[in-house]
Nucleic acid binder design. Sequence first.
DNA 1: ATGAAAGCGCTAACAT
DNA 2: ATGTTAGCGCTTTCAT
Lengths: 368, 368
Amino acid sequence: MGTAQPVDGNYARGMTPESPSLHAGSGGAHAATLQDVAREAGVSLATASRVLNGSARKVAEDFRERVERAADSLGYTPNVSAQATARGRSPVIALLVADIADPYFGQIAAGVARGADERGLVVTISITERDPERENRILRALRGQRPQGLILAASRADRTGEAGAADPADAELEAFSRYGGRVVAFGERPGDGSGTRAITIDNAGGAEELGRRMAALGYRSAIGIGAAEGVRTSDDRLNGFARGFAAGGGEMSRIHRGDFRRESGTAAMAAALAEGVEPGTLVFGMSDVVALGAMSAIRAAGRAVGADIAVCGFDDVSASGDVTPALTTVRVPLNDAGYQAFRAIVDDDWTQAPLPVEVIVRGSTPGL
Amino acid sequence: MGTAQPVDGNYARGMTPESPSLHAGSGGAHAATLQDVAREAGVSLATASRVLNGSARKVAEDFRERVERAADSLGYTPNVSAQATARGRSPVIALLVADIADPYFGQIAAGVARGADERGLVVTISITERDPERENRILRALRGQRPQGLILAASRADRTGEAGAADPADAELEAFSRYGGRVVAFGERPGDGSGTRAITIDNAGGAEELGRRMAALGYRSAIGIGAAEGVRTSDDRLNGFARGFAAGGGEMSRIHRGDFRRESGTAAMAAALAEGVEPGTLVFGMSDVVALGAMSAIRAAGRAVGADIAVCGFDDVSASGDVTPALTTVRVPLNDAGYQAFRAIVDDDWTQAPLPVEVIVRGSTPGL
DNA sequence: ATGAAAGCGCTAACAT
DNA sequence: ATGTTAGCGCTTTCAT
């Protein structure tokens, strides 16, 4: 146990679905079962099962062939649910994201999917919409799937835990790992005594370096745009940036808070502009998506991004390279991070491979 | 049959997972089963089952309460796989996309997920990477899940079918619908006598209108950037645009082909530039992602987007509004389209709701 | 090496 | 209204 197995031994065996018997039944026919295959091949259920799944070779060559031919001609595909109930474990990895249309999660999901495919695992995806209650509901329903693993991206997992504050989700997660499922969370989980594994991105370090570089460019005053206090990713990035920026002689004058959505960045920036923003000020959006929103607010206010108001973000989602001026940011290997999460689920002895972050200076932060 | 049912009657009943008995077993404990609940409640398996699932109320109030209390205290969650094997149908919708990190598919996926959540259905996601062989493999493996439905976004479904050319995937899809699953494809499927339902986006119409508008803006010469010939979405958009543009007195001089990826747009545009592009020329990228790639190639070549070389695209992904100049495009309600696909699966009597496309003129195509 | 048979957790007749 | 019981399709002892 622990090591994932292919959902289906014959995953790659080139069966031809257009075999005759497939076209037999019309209306509500039923898919061929193992029974059907066994009968057709004139062998027992057990033998058919042994052939069609990777159990150590114990079947005589001629039997094996008969079975394979039968399976082929019937267009047999193992019923995953049945396999799961029989085996007591199902070949699914459940992925929880806040919003799959957000490029940040899209990248992560792509990485997870890439890994899952390698192992013939199925990935299910659930959307939390950043609503904790919704997340709890989903978590509970997910447990019913008895997935091999659970990947929490952008959930309340990403919060600074108040010591002793019992999160109902915690119990749920514990139940998960107790029953053999592995839980992987993006961002450190505070009170995790349980088997939860964490995928950590060096948010603080990357942001600090960014802050330093921005100070070196000549910026001295910055406005931060972040999520609510207590959201770890946001806090780490904001604090890291402030530290690096201060080290270079700059100062983060104020922080406007919202959430991770683009509109939030727009609104925060609009608020900042309403209070007045000096030319030469630097705006640090805690994520590219938010920074992009801020850029649009800056333009909407008739100001210019760059020499007038500089902007930088974090993540390096693909849109960041497309805007003009292109957005200065910190590149995060999100796809790899997703892949890592997958590995954290399937590898018994897992240690996170480094996920190097890298500052990328572009036109949105010209030297002063 | 046909109408989807919630995966779990007690999906929303607020159970508290942190109940005592949950913490009983340590190591490889097993999740509470219906048996456990029935025993704890002192009722039969059948009664427990009846209570815990929505079957018409036939259970006395006190029994019902006893069962619910027991389920609650044991932290019971129905085993979805077991339910699926017993019921003969599983609560999953399988979504096939080319690349989940692509905003086009991300939006669609979000719409599908939104719908699935309404019905308590699970959505699994598979990545084809636009590789037909890979897609076939996935299709075959997916059949094993016996999903209620299959949503094909960006697959070879989106190809002009050569009459009689037997696509191996076709047989697979037919098998799907024969066995009760519903198949929904984005883009018309040519030879679909089978139960395949199609989500159609008015690519030709939207592109035609775009072409007209661009001609009205004064453009007379356009370069198209599209996918390989035979890819329906691309063809429809290219042809529609050419028609509208011609109607307004313009002419699409040449077409550079590639695929749907951003880099493909960059490469195609680079090729076009190498051949020489007159100022005042309009570039129509068959999708925003491709158009964005083209914009970057234009800049890389030291040319300017807008008055020098105008660019327009199709889809209105969110990045299109962020670039400067912002990209003129045709807005497609992708999220709604995904939701529609979901409905096409769960509604027996389904007819596609209109998915209005709308031309959005922005700075990348200034009037001449 | 092969087969018979007892589960896996749940549903759905069929009794009572 | 409740309980009994035979499946669902597959895996996996346990005999042979």
